[in-house]
């Protein structure tokens, strides 16, 4: 039986692109991403500590900022640490695009629309007529 753990494609082979010089560049980008992720985490916690969680517009804006920071962190983990940025474009698209579509409609339909319906129509009515 042929072994499937061997990499046959020479362009992809381990020795082809991964010399010492390439390693230096990779480690540099790893350091950059490490600092970025740490700083973003500290900023997130700091914001959570300073701004009080109430029903103000300030907190609503902060939430959006926190979610954007999370997506930035996720982007760097996937693209840099998981090396998806170095893979072929067709693989990148195959992995990311279906997931984003799925999440967008789940968030819109379930978290925003359906939960709002359950809250305003079902639960609030139960409070009025027990």
């Amino acid at each position: 039986m042929e072994r499937d753990d061997l990499i046959r494609d020479h362009e992809y082979s381990v020795a082809a692109n991964h010399d010492e010089a390439h390693g230096v560049a990779t480690r540099k980008s790893i350091t950059f991403v490490t600092i970025l992720l740490s700083v973003l985490t500290i900023v997130e916690v700091g914001i959570g500590w300073v701004i009080s969680r109430d029903h103000s517009t300030m907190w609503a804006m902060t939430k959006i900022a926190l979610i954007i920071m999370t997506l930035v962190k996720a982007r760097y983990i996937v693209m840099s640490f998981m090396h998806l940025g170095e893979e072929r474009k067709n693989l990148k698209k195959t992995i990311i695009i279906p997931y984003i579509f799925f999440m967008v409609y789940m968030i819109t339909l379930i978290i925003l629309l359906e939960s709002n319906y359950v809250n305003t129509v079902i639960l609030q009515q139960e409070l009025v007529t027990p």
């Binding site: 753990d5 990499i7 046959r8 494609d9 992809y12 893979e87 072929r88 067709n90 693989l91």
Partner: peptide
């Protein structure tokens, strides 16, 4: 021959 994604079987 090889993978259309140019990625090994295990990683895919």
């Amino acid at each position: 021959d090889g993978s259309p994604f140019r990625i090994s079987y295990g990683k895919l």
